[in-house]
Design a binder for these strands. Sequence first.
DNA 1: CTATACGGAATGAACGTTCATTCCTTCATG
DNA 2: CATGAAGGAATGAACGTTCATTCCGTATAG
Lengths: 191, 191
Amino acid sequence: MSKVEKRSEIVHAALELIAENGFHGAPMAMIAERANVGAGTIYRYFENKDVLINGLCQDLEERMYPIILKGYAADTPLRERFLHLGAALLRYFIGNPLDFRFLEQFHNSPYGVEHRRDKILGKNAEYNVFRELFEAGVSRQVMKDLPLVILFALAFGPLLAVARDHILNFISLDDDLIARTVEASWDGIRR
Amino acid sequence: MSKVEKRSEIVHAALELIAENGFHGAPMAMIAERANVGAGTIYRYFENKDVLINGLCQDLEERMYPIILKGYAADTPLRERFLHLGAALLRYFIGNPLDFRFLEQFHNSPYGVEHRRDKILGKNAEYNVFRELFEAGVSRQVMKDLPLVILFALAFGPLLAVARDHILNFISLDDDLIARTVEASWDGIRR
DNA sequence: CTATACGGAATGAACGTTCATTCCTTCATG
DNA sequence: CATGAAGGAATGAACGTTCATTCCGTATAG
């Protein structure tokens, strides 16, 4: 197994275990076992567990963004753009339940809160499709005149809740239901 | 300290610690210390930590419901009823951030998933204002014709997300913003 | 009224377990 | 051989839980 493969085996095992059992249920020894690696080996790739977990999140975002943005056209009407992003996000989560569950675990832990604080309050102003879309929506008076944070909550709150319900088998989403859910969440933000 | 007081000291300390630091950050020894109680004493009131935590949730719901339902009139229009419940819920969470944070921790743990599975799939059919409101909304064609679970997600997803953002200081909600947020989430579910 | 005996409540040191991390040995490769 | 990667047993800290002991309010006897 090459060095890169080994790293990715560790990352994959960690993500899987955390997604399935939460942070409690993913001790380093178990991660090592599932990755077919010695317990000490992990520490050759990651300084400690915190670093491993934050690395997991970063890896995940880098895998996710290109997939969600595939076919996204920045010159179509705002509504269409939102429907694209919403449906793509929802489909991604449904198709990759482990990724979704990991992100949920992550965002409900001290790690995730810190991460989000940086994103929202940070002076990074990093390029962000979502932020751009919503700022355009407000300034063109297509969306409600509410703070960006609230618009995000109105748009993504339902989508994440629905993804969770699907993954926990409280409901079964098909393409039609996905489309109607995203349209409904658009009704929440549009003027 | 009377027996009842002692129990409630333990419950309060546990809720506070779990809300502030998550389940990780609330070892029994620390709960005991904050409750001014011996470590072993907790086990005179609760069989083990699981029982304590589930008890916390139950206590909390019993405290919450009467407050949220105060002034709720089952004979007013559906929109008005929803706005009442939504605003009451949001105000409760904002006014009791520890309760909110505890519920979030709880629902994102195995405890909470089990709890929710029982509520949604259980044959209990326990009386539930929320379910009743939404079923009426669908059958009177005031709300979108979507599965109940999705309507719940559309309605409460944004409210919970907004409460979280307020409590984490990503935004500051006042009465006006609360009202406009709840109205927006009504737009998401109404036909 | 005081002294003593009793029993349930409270205590916190101690236990066994589990975890993240370290460290020394073994192995593979040049 | 020499070098660095990999392995997994060892380590110590932290956890939930237990239990022998202490504490204290009340009942009883003198």
